[in-house]
Design a protein around this nucleic acid. Structure first.
Lengths: 199, 199, 199, 199
DNA sequence: TATGAATGAGGCTTCATTCAT
DNA sequence: AATGAATGAAGCCTCATTCAT
């Protein structure tokens, strides 16, 4: 019984993981449920045992990203506690797309871009993740500020948004150029700007 | 004779314009050819009289943006000749998505994000437009530099990439947040950073 | 369980049988997948559950003929072991098209004629069937030869090709004339010629 | 005026010639009117100026073959007046498909095979051509007979049908095998058989 | 005689989803 | 928990044909 349900969880996890990868690689609409099942070697109609619809698995994938982010187990450092961490936050992202040949941008940004206008749930889901990151960065900056290590003119929330936007734009530009240089330039200058507020 | 060919061009232009609008609103994959034809009140299969495939009309839409950009007739100031122009470049973009209720991001960025990985032509097309804008900005900065009005440490090309990326990221963030504030914060700081190189 | 899979197989077999009949009656290109499904009372898009494409079902139909030929369950005697068998081989074919009002020729020849130039798989598939028949006839003739019952000048392989070609030509002529006489004349003379090598 | 109508005739002839070639190469159904017009560099809708329908141009192509046959200007000797002529009749056909890489069979046989069952006009048209050839051969044989140079048992009409059928079958076999050998074997034996009636 | 825009039916194929077991 | 057959709408595209000039 327990074994079975565990097996189920494994199957379910395999489907989510495959979907996540395919959504990132080619987009949500370009990915059919059949392709997810084939790629994950899952028998047809297993899908509707675990998920209620395609929208549902998109939601699950986004929740998966949220869990990754919360747990800190992802490939990108998100728990920002120092200027070095913030630098890693930026460069981890650029390194991430470099490893994929600059053929993908941020998986969350992509999905949001594709679906946010017609699927409010997607927008909210992505917002949650972005919000978490935002809090991580602004928390760090607020800490600095309370320690008197940040200029008074610095607005932690605004600078967090600036950071997230810059990363998103950098990754998109890398994909369009199929080259990491513009992304590196972007994050480099973003960091220079952010650090200009340090005292 | 002239009327006829004009009529044809009108139909064609109507299809392109409708496609452009729908692609921006809901994405390319979410837009069916039938929907383009219905929305533009065009009889079925006129489409393939003017375009060879769906990819073809995507290409045409992107070429349309290129023409808009080259002619300077678009809603965004792209012919950058002063710091004020650069400021307008950033804020025109934010204003553009504000008018659409923050439900869309950059039409070019969206299409690239959705299709660039699987459609090289799309990537190249978007690159052309981005390249034009990049040249416009870096041209301005290079001019400043030759006049001694820009710090020597400033790299015009890198700063152009930074500008484009920030705008793209800002618009995406506006869409995800359904709110213009983060975008405004982003472009504000981008401008501060850019101007920090002025002498 | 068994019933289910049988039900599936039955659906599939029904599709193949209907396709086979329609291909023979009106040609492959003249037969739409929709027509196959309607005629076989199969719900739409069941088709792609069992076959990957139209080419695929053509392939399956040709494989069906191959199985018929190998199993000897077809309406034509193909297991040639005597002069009488060879005679029946010829006359079975003519009788076959007579029953269909001389409105069709050989189903394999038709499909090959229509598609072999653009579909190598079809050519290969038909070749396999023709090759089987060729071996059957030449095997018989070689047997005769080894028993000294065939003139030394007789070339079993060449005479097999001659037999197959004559049958194909006879059936086509019957269709063009909507009359069996020329086909009968053809196979009669083919047999006379073949028997002229008997000792 | 005259020039114009002549120009028209040239356009028309070009369309017919292109259609003839494409029908032979890939079949009638596989050839679209658009393809005919494109291949012949003819503006669209010129077609319906000269022909009333696709069936009509098929008819015209078949009438073209009839005229070729009647005029004796074709690549195949059809005016049979000697055993040598008959031999050439057979070998010209095989040589004809050899030059086309054994990728096509008889253009008339192909069209008949594809359409005769559903288009009576096509059947009649092909029959006319085949009938002409039949008369040519049987005329020769009847002449021989009246001169006492043919065995009494020989039936000129039956042997003509046999000749036509063998050629058709030979060409089809060449196409299926993508090799001329079986066709050569077939016509060789057909000739042996025919000559066996010579006195 | 000539042009090309327009039409609409239909072809092949894919999709998300449900059903029966 | 799992299987795969079944469904029907919809997607992209091609076709033969007609219209307007």
């Amino acid at each position: 019984m327990d074994q079975l349900s565990e097996k189920g969880n494994i199957t379910r996890a395999r489907i989510v993981e495959t979907a996540r990868e395919l959504f990132h690689k080619q987009g949500v609409r370009a990915t059919s449920i059949d392709q997810i099942l084939e790629t994950s070697s899952t028998g047809k109609s297993q899908f509707y045992h675990y998920f209620s619809s395609k929208d549902d698995i998109v939601h699950e994938v986004l929740r998966f990203y949220m869990r990754i982010v919360e747990s800190g187990r992802g490939p990108v450092l998100l728990n920002i506690e120092s200027w070095d961490d913030l630098e890693r936050f930026f460069y981890d992202h650029v390194e991430g797309v470099r490893m994929l040949g600059y053929e993908r941008s941020c998986p969350l940004g992509s999905i949001a871009n594709e679906l946010a206008s017609e699927n409010e749930q997607v927008r909210v889901d992505v917002n949650l993740v972005f919000g978490y990151i935002r809090n991580s960065i602004s928390g760090f900056l607020k800490g600095l500020k309370s320690e008197g290590k940040l200029k008074k003119s610095a607005d932690p929330d605004a600078l967090s948004d600036f950071s997230i936007a810059t990363v998103q734009g950098a990754l998109l530009l890398a994909k369009v150029r199929k080259d990491g240089t513009p992304a590196e330039n972007t994050v480099k200058h973003a960091l220079i700007h952010l650090k200009s507020f340090a005292k």
